[in-house]
Amino acid sequence: MALGATKKDRIDALAKSSVDDSGVSLAASAWRRLRRNPVFLVGLGITLLFVLVAAISPLIAPHDPSARDLIDQVVKARNEIPPAQPGHPLGGDLQGRDFFSRLLVGSQQTLMVGVLATLFGLTGGLVLGTLAGAIGGWVDSLVMRIVDVMLSIPSLLLAFSIGALFAHPNQFTVIIAVATVQIPIFARLLRGSMLAQRGSDHVLAARSLGVKPGQIVFRHMVPNSLGPVIVQSTLVLATSIIDAAALSFLGLGNPNDAIPEWGQMLGTSQEVLDSHPALSFWPAACIIIVALGFTLMGESLRDALDPKNRR
């Protein structure tokens, strides 16, 4: 289980990086470095562009993404698909729908799945991590063993297994499946930084003032443990998008293809991969670029927030 071990180690290393005893100007100094970091700026640019496109795509899409405008150009028998033409820069898909519009509008689903899956994963992880880190003892052992078991299963396989549990897959089951995979990562991360907080001076000082345990956990420990969790969230956005695309690619996604989604577009396009590679290329490229954007942003954020890199 070498893979699982490295994953755990990385989570723990990230959790430790939050132990910063020299105060908060960390955020300010991180931002100063980020502003000059080209990697971060590229990641931020991609992310902002993606969010912008998702937000306004229904307005800028030249055609209705579910209207079969070009259906008369589709000839199944001869494997003919509408080519690029005036008004349809990328041609049409197997159903004769404008491919460019579908790509644009597809960003909405991808963004929604990514954000919601991350949010649900984050919430679940926060609950479990807080329980384990705050109560300790056998609760901690129990939660962390469950988390370890989940981490030991390759994440994509776990997502497939959970996605396959649902009889009628839809967008929501994809979100659940992808989110479940993220829960143990967030839980372990939060617990790690909570443990570090538990021994910290300001928690001891709060205890010396008689502050009640609940307040110590929610006012003093959790807020100070969130730094690495925020960094992890940006990285998880990228993996969620890829995982969700992979699920729809394999047919575990939303069967209703009226609403375009990149993973599903990729899945249907692969039937004609050898004759029309462009149909597979564009959604794949979109997924990769967006995931790359989130990853670049998250990685540089993590480096910037790492106290060891402070100048």
Partner: peptide
């Protein structure tokens, strides 16, 4: 604690919640 007995610690920065 805090009412009858108070305590002041060594490192004032790390003893305050940031």
């Amino acid at each position: 604690r805090g009412r009858d007995l108070g305590m002041v610690f060594q490192d004032p920065l790390s003893s305050l919640n940031p």
